[in-house]
Design a protein around this nucleic acid. Sequence first.
DNA 1: CTGAAAGCGCTTACAG
DNA 2: CTGAAAGCGCTTACAG
Lengths: 342, 342
Amino acid sequence: MTKTRTGKSRASGRITLAAVAQHAGVATMTASRAISQPELVSPELRGRVERSVAELGYLPNRAARALASAHSNVIVVLVPSLSNAVFTAVLAGIQDALDADDYQLLIGNTRYSDAKEEKLLGIYLQSNPDGILLCGLSHSERVEKMLVSSRVPIVSMMDLAGDPDQLSVGFSQFDAGHAMTRYLIDKGHTRIGFIGAQLDERTLRRAGGYRKAMDEAGLADPRLQVMVGDPSTITLGAELLGRMLARVPDCDAIFCCNDDLAHGAIYQCQRRGIRVPEQLAICGFNDLPASAWMNPSVTTIGTPRYRIGFESAMLLRSVIKGETPAATQIDLGFTLMARESA
Amino acid sequence: MTKTRTGKSRASGRITLAAVAQHAGVATMTASRAISQPELVSPELRGRVERSVAELGYLPNRAARALASAHSNVIVVLVPSLSNAVFTAVLAGIQDALDADDYQLLIGNTRYSDAKEEKLLGIYLQSNPDGILLCGLSHSERVEKMLVSSRVPIVSMMDLAGDPDQLSVGFSQFDAGHAMTRYLIDKGHTRIGFIGAQLDERTLRRAGGYRKAMDEAGLADPRLQVMVGDPSTITLGAELLGRMLARVPDCDAIFCCNDDLAHGAIYQCQRRGIRVPEQLAICGFNDLPASAWMNPSVTTIGTPRYRIGFESAMLLRSVIKGETPAATQIDLGFTLMARESA
DNA sequence: CTGAAAGCGCTTACAG
DNA sequence: CTGAAAGCGCTTACAG
C-alpha cells in the first residue's frame, strides 16, 4: 500500500519530510515551508507540522537540502595545527560567532603541509561550502587555483593582506616582530638572537621584523639567527638555546618566535644555571597561559587570537549574506607584555 | 541547445558528472564507475574519463553522492574541548588513522556541555554519518535517545565501558586515580589532598580511585577534597592550592586531577616559598609536555591519548565496513611517571 | 564491459 | 496561504 514498500527500495529508512507531511495531513511543500519559513504558513498547519516533526523525531536530510537548494550551510575552516593553543583559540572564536546560525563547520588540520592543505581543500570543496576561513596569506599554486575556481568567499586569518580585494583579519606579524626586537634593543641589549622553528609564513614575517630592527640599530649579524623547520616544542626550545649559545656565546638576549620555544629555553637556562634575565634575557610570542605564571614570568607578545576567529567568522558571515563589508581588512593589533624574563 | 541553458535552471554552475561524461563521450554511468570503481571499466574509457576529469577540473558533489548512495562517508567526532591538549592528541590519532580513506571528519566541540552536545549531535546526524566517535561513557538522556534511534555505529573514547555490547577504547580512569594515590601513600604521605576541576566524568572517576585508595589506607578525610566545576587552568590550580592549604594547613601532598592544575599549584608554591616536594608533594595527570621540563619536573600519569584516537578510529572503521571486531573493549593502559615533584 | 531509467529527499519556481 | 510538478547531481539496480 505505501509507496516506500514497493519492490526494491533504495530508501535510507529514516523519517522523511514526506512522511512528516503525510502524518500532518499536508503537502510535502507545506511541511518544508513550516520548517524553514514558518511565517509563510498558517498557524494551524504550522502547528500540525511541528507536532508531527516532534512525534516522528524527524531530522532533515542535509544532503538532500544541499542538493536541492544549491547551498550547503557548510563553512570550511583550515588551520595549520590543532595542538597549538593559538589556533584552538581561533576556532573557539569562530564557533562562538557562528553559534546561533545553522552553519556546519568543517574543520581541517593541514599540519603546516601544502600537500595536506590541497587534499583537505579538495575534499571539502566537494561539499560546496558557503564560505572558507584560511590561515595565512600565501598558499600553494594549486590551492590558489582551487580557491579561485570555486568562487567561494574566503577570509584570511592571522595576518593582514596588502591587497584590499582580499578579506583579512589579524595583525601585522612583521610589526610585532619589529616591536619586540626594538624593546630588547631599548633595554640595552646588543647581541640579540632570534630562534625560529616551523618556518611558516608568520614566523618568517616575525623574523623579517626582527631583521629590520636589527639593521636599523646597526646590530645585524646573520649568526644570531637560528632557524629550523621542525615543529615548535618545549624540547626544541631547550635544544635551540644550546645551539644559539654554542654559536654566539656572548649572546645577551634571545627572541623566540613563540612561547613554546621560549619556555623550553628558560627551563634549559634553569638547568644550566644561567640566570634569566640577568645573564640572558628571553622573550616569546603569543602569551600562552603559562607565560604569566612561570618563574620568571615571560615577556611576550599578546595576540588577539580569539577575536581573530570571531571577527573573521562575522566578516565571512556578512559576505555570505550578500552584504558589503565596511572594511576588507581588520587590524586587531598586538600587545607587548613586558614581564620578568626580558 | 544544451539542456542546462533551457529556461530557469537551478543548476549550481559547477562541472557535473554528466558534463564529464559528455566531454569523454560516454554515458554518465560509465563516468561514475570510472571514478569510483575503475576496475570495472575498460582501460580505454577509463582513460578518457580520467582525462576529462582533469581537463574540466571536476569535483564530485558530495551531497548528491550521499543522497543517491545513502551513505555519507562522514564520521562525527565529539570532544569536550579543543583547548585541552589531551583531546587534540586524540584528534591527531583519529586523523592519522583515517588519513588514507575518503572520510570526512565532522569535529564538534561540546565544551563539556550536555546542551551543546545535544545541539551538535542533532546537526551532525542530519548529515547521515557512517559512524560516531564520542568521549566518555555517560551522556544525557536525549543524547542517548538520538544515538540509539540513529542506529549509527559508535565508539566511546577515553574510558572503558563495562558493557561488552558497547565499543570502547581507553583506560581505567578509576584505576589510574587509585594508582597515583597509592604511590603517594607508599611514599609515606598521610594528608593527601585531591584537587578536582571541571568535574566531568573522567575527573570524577579519578576522584573515585583516590577515595578508594584513601579508604583502604584508613586516611580518608572529606576535607581533603577540593572540587569545583570551573574549567581547569593554571590560574585555577594556583587558586585551589591556596584554598586547600587554607582548609588543611598540614596537607603534605596534593593530587591534582590534571597537569594544568598541578602546574598552577607548583608555580604558586614557588611564589609562596613552599618547597616542592620537600614541604609539599604535588602531582598531576596526563603528562603534558611541560611536565617533563618544569623545575621541579612533575610526577603525573602518562595517558595514551594519541593511541586512543587512533585505535578508536580503526575500530570504528572496521565496524563500518561490516567486520566483527576481535574485542569490543580496548584497554590501552596508563603509565605513572615518577619525577621530582612528588 | 556499457548504458537508459528510476530514485535518493529535499527545495525552487510557478499556479491557484 | 497551499500544493502538484520538476529538478538538484549523483548511484543503484537492471538489462544487454
